[in-house]
Amino acid sequence: MKPRVTQLGMVSIGFVATGVIYLAAYLPKRAPLAPAVVFLVLAAAVFAFNALSLARQPGFAWWRFRQVAGWMTLVYLIVAGMLEFTFLYDHTRGPALAIMTLLLAIFTLNVPLLSGWTVAHLETD
């Protein structure tokens, strides 16, 4: 059975988005961080499960996955760099910055995974 990479990726990015919206909705005050940490952990857990289930996929076209995911990682590192610049520029500091950065990291990892999977699994269809 094929892993549900796209669906799980959507769930993981959904948790990232919820965490970011939750934090942003409190600006310029500091939001209580516990719910944001919960969203972060959920996003990371779903991403990890997704990546592991993909890694166990037999006969997967990893060469194509690496090709697509590699370039997508480069693109989204630039996007993530711009977003991180905005966080720092807006004086986000301390635990809030750490959580935002980790949410951003999970987002940045999810995008190449989704594109790489979509292209690579069609190689062996």
């Binding site: 796209t6 990726g9 959507m10 990015i13 959904g14 988005a17 919820t18 970011v20 919206i21 942003a24 909705a25 697509v68 999810n110 995008v111 989704l114 594109s115 999977w117 979509t118 292209v119 069609l122």
Partner: peptide, 21 residues
């Protein structure tokens, strides 16, 4: 922000990968 999040999820998980594929 919620509307943008929905659009981002659809675009990043469905539109963009389909486009590249």
């Amino acid at each position: 922000m919620i509307v943008v999040a929905v659009m981002a999820i659809v675009a990043l998980a469905l539109l963009q990968p389909a486009n590249i594929a």
